[in-house]
């Protein structure tokens, strides 16, 4: 190859190199997002945040000696995960360490409990890509991850909105409220306090459809 031909081919060579680099970067980004999607859709692991918003005396205690490991948060304790948050005076979570192939060590929550002035704020998937907004309060809230249940006791009350286009909101009180986290079903029971369940459903009144008379 002559010198002149070599110089002439330089712009094409550099263009080819640029294209190759761009393809490589694109490939890497695709790989990255595919990996991220796999992690999320697989539901294999999730990040949960535990923190305290109390100004004084708030702390998080980790008892690694115990089996399962105990995490106790005091003073405006908050548990936050992708679907919502629970705030209370005290939060106790028990978890075990588990080695998962390809994912290292993960924790498995055995039980979680919130005590004191508990407030709950969640968004749950309902039919037709809708998300129901659940707001509640009680004195004690237990999470049973095995059965996917959320159990509220101690004068619990709950307000659900966005369940369907017809129901604007539902308010419920009882001695014990159990919510299935898989189906979203709510069960109102008298509980230990023997409080009769009280549910108030507000129906959205739609204006009657206009008909044209000829």
């Amino acid at each position: 190859m002559s010198m002149r031909a070599f110089v002439r081919s330089l712009p094409f060579v550099s263009l080819g190199a640029c294209l190759l680099c761009a393809a490589f970067i694109w490939h890497m980004s695709i790989m990255g997002s595919a990996l991220a999607l796999q992690e999320v859709s697989g539901g294999q692991f999730e990040f949960v945040k535990v923190y305290c918003i109390g100004q004084r005396g708030s702390s998080i205690k980790l008892m690694l000696r115990k089996e399962p490991i105990e995490v106790i948060a005091y003073g405006g304790a908050v548990i936050e995960w992708s679907q919502g948050r629970i705030q209370s005076d005290t939060v106790i979570a028990r978890l075990i360490q588990k080695g998962v192939q390809g994912k290292g060590v993960l924790g498995t929550v055995v039980s979680a409990e919130a005590m004191g002035n508990v407030s709950l704020d969640m968004r749950m998937d309902v039919e037709g890509e809708r998300k129901a907004h659940v707001v509640g309060s009680c004195k004690r809230l237990q999470i049973d991850p095995k059965e996917s249940l959320l159990i509220m006791t101690g004068s619990p009350q709950i307000k659900v909105s966005g369940i369907s286009p017809e129901v604007s909101q539902a308010l419920g009180k009882a001695g014990r409220i159990t919510m299935s986290l898989e189906s979203g079903e709510l069960l109102f029971e008298p509980g230990d306090e023997q409080l009769l369940p009280e549910v108030n459903v507000q129906i959205e009144r739609k204006p009657p459809e206009k008909t044209t008379k000829k």
Partner: peptide, 23 residues
């Protein structure tokens, strides 16, 4: 040996868990 740890002053934890609220 860190058998018991107490975090205080704006404490926060980030847990990576395999099972939480299963939907």
């Amino acid at each position: 040996v860190l058998g018991e740890v107490e975090l205080s002053g704006r404490p926060s934890l980030r847990l990576r868990i395999s099972k939480w609220l299963k939907y």
